[in-house]
Computed example of a mutant assay.
Amino acid sequence: MSTIKNKKIAIVGGGPGGLTLARILQMKDADVKVYERDPGKDARAQGATLDLHYDSGLRALREAGLMDAFKANYRPGADRLSIVDKHANVLMEDDEKETGAQERFRPEIDRGPLKKILLDSLHPDTVIWNSHFTSLTRVDDACLLTFQDGSTAIADIVIAADGANSKIRPYITPIKPFYSGITIVEGAVYNSVVASPNIHRLLKNGKLFVMGDDKTLIVSSKGDGSLVFYTGCKTEESWSRDCGINFSDKAAVFNWFKSTFTDWNNIWDELFENASSHFIPRPQFCMPLDQTWNALPDLTMLGDAAHLMPPYAGEGVNMAMLDALELGLCLTDDGFPDTHTAIAAYEQQMRTRASATAAMTLESTAALHSSDAIPFLMQIVS
């Protein structure tokens, strides 16, 4: 670990990517802190169930020595995927991924348990909570991080793991994402067996991909008995701001759904009628596939901060965790003469990999919101 010996490393963002990197670095005795804006580990509800892939998310957990903890916390059977049309006809069920080839094994785990596994693997006090990053300045040969509450931290290397709206990325490159053409509206239903029994039966503790009329509705079960769902529609980039819908008003969102998803089976109404009152509109953006920048000796990034893309290939968390593994390996590789060289090597391979994944993701995003959506997905999962 010659390149980072005696260096303080700051990771901004305590999601799966940032926490995985902290674990990889601490395994090599690096001096690392994670600065997370949430006030504590239980500050907010965690989102959808994640399916981890053999050669990315699961590889990172294997090399981090956390597979036993993962196997104790993942949800067997939750990778069941049902392809459904808008009339609620189940066209295909895929529930063989856990029993087939190892490379096809894509087990599901809720974000909460995954976060706990990663947090529990770190040294005490690694994560500094309530650290909402606001600015970075260079002081001599170090970086001074300033947070919203006025506190500061000094680090020799800073890694942006702060997601889609990264505040550190602009210190690395001015390149901005472009709009993908799709906006998601996210909602959640608690205690789905009681609140939405018909959807609950259809889910079978797995995931539904419902498609029709160039639109999608994805529903995922969670281990706590709740479900999360996401509509996907082609809209203008500014739609969520200009549409006039109050997304905290359940009735208003339900009216929008009924007028937009016309002729869809009434079973889907259960989701909107019984959702928690707060919906979240999420315009989907993607970084340019040919993005590049000059490597810096003390700043880099991973996950959505580096290569934001829509979720329609299930690669987001897997990419972030693989980034973390590869960056950690580069920074602790004695073969690199300095951190600048190590970061440059990591960024080159990360961009190449992310570009290919983003191209596949954009193709999938377009196909799932087209008239060929159902045959496209059936071909992929068959």
Rank of each mutant, 00 (worst) to 15 (best):
M1C: 12
S2W: 03
I4A: 01
K5R: 14
K7H: 11
K7P: 09
I9A: 00
I9N: 05
I11Q: 03
G15N: 08
P16S: 13
T20S: 14
T20Q: 05
A22G: 09
A22S: 12
A22K: 00
R23C: 11
I24W: 01
E36N: 06
E36L: 02
D38K: 09
D38T: 03
A45W: 10
A48G: 15
L52N: 05
H53W: 09
H53I: 03
D55F: 13
L58W: 06
E63R: 11
G65V: 01
G65T: 10
M67C: 09
D68F: 02
F70H: 10
K71M: 13
N73T: 09
R75N: 11
R75L: 12
D79W: 06
L81S: 05
N89A: 14
L91G: 00
D94S: 14
G100C: 07
R111A: 01
G112Y: 14
I117S: 02
S121G: 05
P124R: 07
N130K: 12
D141R: 12
L144N: 13
T146W: 10
Q148G: 12
I159K: 08
A160R: 07
G163L: 06
G163P: 04
G163V: 08
N165S: 15
S166H: 01
S166A: 02
K167W: 09
K167V: 12
I168L: 14
I168N: 11
R169N: 00
R169E: 02
P170M: 06
Y171E: 05
K176I: 10
P177C: 07
S180V: 10
T183S: 13
I184L: 15
I184W: 15
E186Y: 14
N198W: 00
K207M: 14
K207V: 13
V210G: 06
M211V: 04
M211P: 04
G212M: 04
G212E: 06
T216G: 03
S226T: 11
S226N: 14
V228F: 08
C233I: 14
K234M: 07
S240H: 12
R241W: 11
F247P: 07
K250W: 01
F257N: 02
K258T: 14
T260A: 07
N274A: 06
S276W: 05
P281M: 01
R282I: 09
P283D: 05
F285Q: 05
M287P: 02
L289I: 12
L289N: 09
Q291I: 10
D304Q: 05
H307V: 00
P310Q: 06
A313E: 09
N318A: 00
M321N: 07
L325E: 01
T332N: 09
P337G: 04
A342Y: 09
A345D: 14
R353P: 03
A359L: 13
S364N: 15
L368R: 12
H369F: 00
S371T: 14
M378G: 13
V381N: 07
